[in-house]
Design a protein around this nucleic acid. Sequence first.
DNA 1: TGTTATAATGACCGACCAGTCAGTCATAAA
DNA 2: TTTATGACTGACTGGTCGGTCATTATAACA
Lengths: 223, 223
Amino acid sequence: MTDQSVINRDRTVAERKREKRDPQQRRAEILAAAFACFAERGFAATRMEDVAARAGIAKGTVYLHFPDKERLFTELVSGIASPILGEIDSLVHNEAIPPRFAVSMFYTLFRREVLETERRHLLRLILAEGPLFPAVTEFYHREIITKGLTVLRILLKRAAERGDLRNPLLADMPQIVMSPALLAIIWTTLFEAYEHLDTQKLFDTFLDTLFVPARAAPEGATP
Amino acid sequence: MTDQSVINRDRTVAERKREKRDPQQRRAEILAAAFACFAERGFAATRMEDVAARAGIAKGTVYLHFPDKERLFTELVSGIASPILGEIDSLVHNEAIPPRFAVSMFYTLFRREVLETERRHLLRLILAEGPLFPAVTEFYHREIITKGLTVLRILLKRAAERGDLRNPLLADMPQIVMSPALLAIIWTTLFEAYEHLDTQKLFDTFLDTLFVPARAAPEGATP
DNA sequence: TGTTATAATGACCGACCAGTCAGTCATAAA
DNA sequence: TTTATGACTGACTGGTCGGTCATTATAACA
């Protein structure tokens, strides 16, 4: 017993890997783990140890990459939404795309990229925890909502000028186009267990409500 | 100053009252305080001591009326919504009321009784904390959502038969009528600080989108 | 192989808080 | 006036969890 390290030497099977990683990769792993935890239980109920365990590392390691729990959360929610944006406003720049089709694509994109993925939990998270994190809310309003509304406003104006809208005043209320998407998020994350919502049908019905019925020749509105 | 109330009268400023109350009244006071706290900070961030302080009593007293924090919360959110329901389905039983007017009243009621009161925070609370309290979510789906949708379905069917709907298929998707209300809740509790939303205009525009334009004589749909 | 730099660990600390309970006192009954 | 009641109080407990840091393992390099 001359060597003092003996105390630590005879570790059991449960030994941890203590693997070193590329910092970027480690960071991404932590974010992925945090995403799963926060989406599952919310901000308050998620423990840093849960996140660490899920990432397969020790709690202290998390703090090598993020200063505190709040920053972990805010960086997570700020980082996820951005990729979607790009696709959205490519819809508006191509003027050849009929407005109705563009809005329809908007819904399709939303279904495929948000509703039908784990991202939907994240969106609900922002709604849920928003008031406790004004910075996050402000970010989302500025980066997502404002940009989305701008795109929709342009599309709706174009549609109104072509006589495609059943109610031309819609161009002044782009929020209305967003509302079924919001409903779909809430419903699928809250009530789906009790009553199924057919989101495809929801969006289709809504589109038929916003736009005048399709026509063989979209040019001549009045015969 | 001859009566015994003197003992209670000239207490020093910092002194607590230790006032006895009718249990029902005390209970109501606690619920009111809890409402304010939960609405302001959410479930997790609210301390039982905050609730007690707001009600002007000691923490222990809260536990004389509610077994634990969770029950305080669930009894609170379950108890508040019920009163509104009555008014809603009185709208559907009077067949003389034109459907459009009934839906319009639905929105007006929603604005006056929810959006423009503190109740709006409660509704957001349910959206936010829902997943952590399945019992509450289930209750709301059963008591509020289902009943609301049933009423709307009847109204929309009636409207479709009269030819009032721009898209008759709406009768099969009453959720669509609810969606702007949901948007209004989220917006006013989350984004209002950054960008004002004119909810009156929102609902008016939406009504004009759902229903065919008003006519001098609502009877004859076809001239 | 020995040395150094640093990523990783997890025991530990202290703040926080839900829930408890022994004691207090306003009130009402005797 | 005395006694009994129970609503009310708030210090306390037990447990939880965010965040720290001395120690240890690993990689890179000499």
